[in-house]
Design a protein around this nucleic acid. Structure first.
Lengths: 110, 110
DNA sequence: TTATCATATGAACATTTAATCATATGTTCA
DNA sequence: TGAACATATGATTAAATGTTCATATGATAA
């Protein structure tokens, strides 16, 4: 863990272990990807932005469920939000997100 | 993607949505990365294989806790196992795993 | 064989988490 | 203004999950 002990440089690792706090953040990030509903939402909006209700329709799930999960995605900066009239459109935040998913897919499909 | 023009866009997907089963597997994979103990274990063994007890010592956690989590990593093919006498040595399965973590780190640290 | 060490595992418990229901907030338009 | 619509949110409930304790399994050496 975050050993900042100057005397202990016996560490022959190439990768330095990040601070504990970073590791917690990292786990929290992956936690967001670790739910099938959120994964499906991310796929659904990966090409086009979509309104909440159309995501719900598309996945055959309740609007409330989708909204709750979109909040999680929002809080973790994984989606972009745009309001247009009564509707709110969501899209993936950046290609970063897609790449993480692709990496996971590679592992799952291999 | 990220079409900001709301007028009559044709929904032309570039990415096909994988089967539901694959999406579940994908979520399950990320679920494994979504725990700080497992993340820390993965960092700990990312450079050198290590025995269960030395991982536990290194993280200041119970042998049982580490063993339980190593099982999860094993079941998801994220670690390699090698027995040598009484000890069992664990290492990361492949660079794939590292790359997934690196991707996540990029997002967390940005 | 038996004692000892290293690891794995089952059960119990506490905590987290996702889905649902009901309702609140915010927007548009008559 | 008020009705209708789209989305967000709080509370509740059920299920999943991580840690701990106690113990089982498996390996080594005397």
């Amino acid at each position: 863990m975050n050993i900042t002990n100057p005397t202990a440089d016996i560490n022959k690792s190439n990768h330095e272990m990040p601070d504990l706090e970073v590791l917690f953040d990292l786990a929290d990030l992956f936690k967001v990807f670790g739910d099938s509903t959120r994964i499906r939402i991310m796929f659904t909006i990966s090409d086009n932005e979509m309104s909440v209700q159309s995501i719900a329709d598309s996945l055959n799930m309740e609007q409330s469920t989708i909204s709750h999960q979109l909040r999680v995605l929002r809080q973790n900066k994984l989606v972009r939000v745009r309001r247009e009239g009564k509707q709110i459109y969501y899209s993936l935040d950046d290609d970063h997100v897609k790449r993480i998913i692709e990496m996971g897919l590679d592992h799952v499909l291999e």
